[in-house]
């Protein structure tokens, strides 16, 4: 599945680029690529920024190392992590 076909991945990609001030086109981010160590230059502070963003926007906590490893494996993995755990959506 690509960013274009999964709306949650596309949304997360836009938020990631915006929140972390990344100088790249969201369309070019590979949803299967690892978030860390794949040339995005993301570090521990970025991860914490994403943790807060995901809890605030989706009600999903990432509060231990194992959850972090699972959630931040890739943007696709992050979307799956959120879908599994998000509270029943009012929308």
């Amino acid at each position: 599945m690509t960013a274009q076909t999964d709306p949650l991945v596309a949304e997360l990609t836009r938020k990631l680029v915006d929140a972390l001030g990344l100088d790249l086109d969201p369309e070019t981010v590979d949803p299967a690529a690892p978030l860390v160590g794949a040339g995005l230059g993301i570090d521990s502070i970025d991860m914490l920024e994403l943790v807060v963003l995901i809890e605030k926007d989706y009600g999903v906590k990432i509060d231990n190392r194992a959850a972090g490893v699972e959630a931040f494996a890739s943007l696709g993995a992050l979307a799956a992590f959120i879908r599994q755990r998000r509270p029943a959506s009012p929308a």
Partner: peptide, 10 residues
């Protein structure tokens, strides 16, 4: 704005 729940680590 978030009632002391969230802010930006950055």
């Amino acid at each position: 704005e978030s009632g002391d729940q969230f802010s930006s680590p950055m």
